[in-house]
Write a protein that binds this DNA or RNA. Structure first.
Lengths: 244, 244
DNA sequence: TAGTGGTCTAGACCACTTA
DNA sequence: AAGTGGTCTAGACCACTAG
């Protein structure tokens, strides 16, 4: 019954149940926004008490993989990218402040991956990538410039779509066109000075500071799906953390 | 959040207990690294079941205010600043990589607070501040330059200490000398270009990007204790987040 | 050995959602 | 009204720590 490695029998029941449920989410057996079996069902099928099931569900809720909704059920959570660094590029629109940037794909093509991309996507030697050039704009002003690389083996269908037909949000698009759902991501923030190309792309002076965000996005099975490098003018960027 | 007001009677028992325990930590009645009463004791004094106490403790553990230790007890956690932005200034020491920077206080004095400081520390009009100038160094190389402001009402004893006698870590020092314990902090990261002063202080060229970290540190009673602005060369800075 | 937190159970009742 | 998750209880037994 256990898909791959069953969890250690010496672990507490609720941990073992947690691992099994995690596996069902990772494997896609339980899909995002779908309700999982009720707590009493899970208790019966695993022949354990409801309280133990609750504890397993609790941990997965705490980890952010599940959402409870009283009276409705418990649901697999769709990943939220609200915490991404991008939220912290202040779009000083003069008028309304919280303007969502529009995105435009400048070009897409099949390429041989640079070394950094091949490493980030854990590609086999010789495997090609789909390369997207993209800009994010506010009021027609270019705010962020992005290079996006995707394994061609999973994403070559994107090349059949005209750049203008790409939506504002890429991840639902990936899922719709290529059946690849993003489950998590890691972002790295660094700072560099704008070279001539970047300065032109962002409409700023060369030499000004630029915030660089590298993102590697993973699917539910932990396989790298996307590697993305984004650059935006550092002016107006602000990121906050809380320490306890 | 709840400052003093006792929690709402309509809330679940475990929530109300959680709020009361939070209050005891915030007020300093339960001190860091000290064990809190046992779960059975709490259950008896509040006339509720142990399971309910466990749930209240669980939430505080999840929030990071308590640490459980099987067989020993449950303890008030000392705040950990491991997650601070400062960890992400890579100290490229050529030799060993993870060198802890040494700190030196350049000067301390009693000052009238600039407007930004008065706001951050929520000072009364006319209240003075203690101002510290500080550098962090690796291998004699200045890595970070800091301005630190503290309410004089609580920290004027620091002026009696010679700058050389300040320790490498300020927060234990604050607690020792002034009896003020830091419980939490908020940090904001922005980027600017080095002006002449900053460039000289950091030993870099003017105009190069500088990472600016503003930190407001709070005591257990949520009162602002310290406002700090730190600047370091953006080169070698890298910060990572994970998104789920 | 005594006392702590950790796991697990079984069941009662409440609050909310949907139909 | 039926079914879901939410709260609360009471008690058994286990695992770890300290004296």
């Amino acid at each position: 019954m256990s898909a791959f490695a069953s969890s250690d029998d010496r672990l507490p029941l609720y941990q073992r149940l947690r691992d099994q449920m995690h596996e069902k989410i990772a494997s896609g057996e339980w899909r995002p926004d779908e309700p999982i079996p009720t707590e009493t069902e899970l208790a019966q099928t695993h022949a354990i008490a409801v309280g133990t099931v609750r504890k397993a569900v609790d941990t997965l809720v705490a980890e952010g993989l599940l959402n409870r909704s009283q009276g409705r059920g418990t649901f697999v959570r769709r990943p939220q990218f609200d915490g991404s660094f991008f939220r912290f590029f202040r779009q000083v629109t003069a008028a309304g402040e919280h303007k969502v940037p529009e995105s435009r794909i400048l070009s897409h093509s099949l390429e041989a991956p640079p070394a950094a991309v091949r490493k980030a996507l854990a590609l086999e030697p010789g495997e090609a990538v789909v390369w997207l050039e993209r800009v994010r704009m506010v009021n027609g002003h270019r705010v962020v410039r992005e290079d996006i690389w995707l394994p061609a083996s999973k994403f070559k269908k994107l090349l059949d779509v005209s750049p203008g037909a790409f939506g504002n949000l890429l991840y639902p698009f990936y899922e719709e066109i290529c059946g690849q759902a993003v489950a998590s991501a890691t972002e790295n923030l660094t700072v560099e000075t704008a070279d001539a190309n970047t300065a032109r792309a962002l409409g700023i002076e060369p030499g000004l500071p630029v915030v660089v965000i590298e993102r590697t996005a993973l699917g539910y099975n932990r396989a790298p799906l996307e590697y993305r490098v984004s650059r935006g003018a550092a002016e107006g960027f602000r990121y906050q953390i809380d320490i306890f």
